[in-house]
Write a protein that binds this DNA or RNA. Structure first.
Lengths: 110, 110
DNA sequence: CCCGATACCTCTAAATCCGATGTATAACTA
DNA sequence: TAGTTATACATCGGATTTAGAGGTATCGGG
């Protein structure tokens, strides 16, 4: 009953407005959620590669003088649709859990 | 980043108002969530045993003529506290995910 | 007479998670 | 100056979780 593909959805949401590199994505998610949501690099990078392979993200290397190069990820058309789909699924899931936990019917309001 | 112990929380919520047996609990959750939330017996029964062992539930066998006996589970004081704790954690988690996914600040309203 | 529902339970292959490890540079600190 | 933290990429593997299959038993409907 766990919500699947949560990482993918969160990554897509993180790069929705602007391209980011992996390290920045993880920080963004951690900060945006007030520290509640966080996952290690062992989950982040494989997920990033899956999304790139699946055509949801495009990647571009940005070399930097002296510093390690960055891999900038940008969302694609397909990625945007996928994100929308994920958001819809999440809403349904969250409503169902909330309802089952509280017994109250929640109003969708996003 | 997945929400842990979701099964435990849902089970406790299912028996909050009245004692139920395992099979009824799984049906209750499935129905209450409109079919969104469901988990197999391979998850249900071990979870039930963990909750009983942990003192969150008490179990009582109800023999039935001809039919297989039922094991009625009732929530304990500790189970009620645990459920409240789970609900609080869930709210925080759901808010964080919703926020990260939509970029919008959600209002807690349960 | 077999299948689906009721009702309990265990087992295990597959998937997932998450911390550890590895490489490299810069900056701050003790 | 040696150690730690932050940046930045990535893989590996032990531990945990999941989800389906299997096992036992009764009853009712097609």
């Amino acid at each position: 009953m766990t919500y699947k593909n949560g990482i993918e959805a969160l990554i897509l949401a993180a790069v929705r407005d602007e391209p980011l590199h992996g390290y920045a994505i993880s920080k963004r998610i951690r900060l945006d959620s007030g520290g509640v949501l966080k996952f290690g690099e062992g989950q982040l990078y494989p997920a990033l590669h899956r999304l790139e392979e699946g055509g949801m993200l495009t990647a571009e290397w940005l070399p930097q003088e002296g510093k390690p190069p960055r891999k900038l990820y940008a969302i694609t058309e397909a990625g945007n649709s996928e994100l929308e789909r994920h958001v819809g699924q999440w809403k349904q899931f969250a409503d169902s859990v909330g309802q089952a936990l509280t017994g109250t019917k929640e109003v969708a309001h996003v």
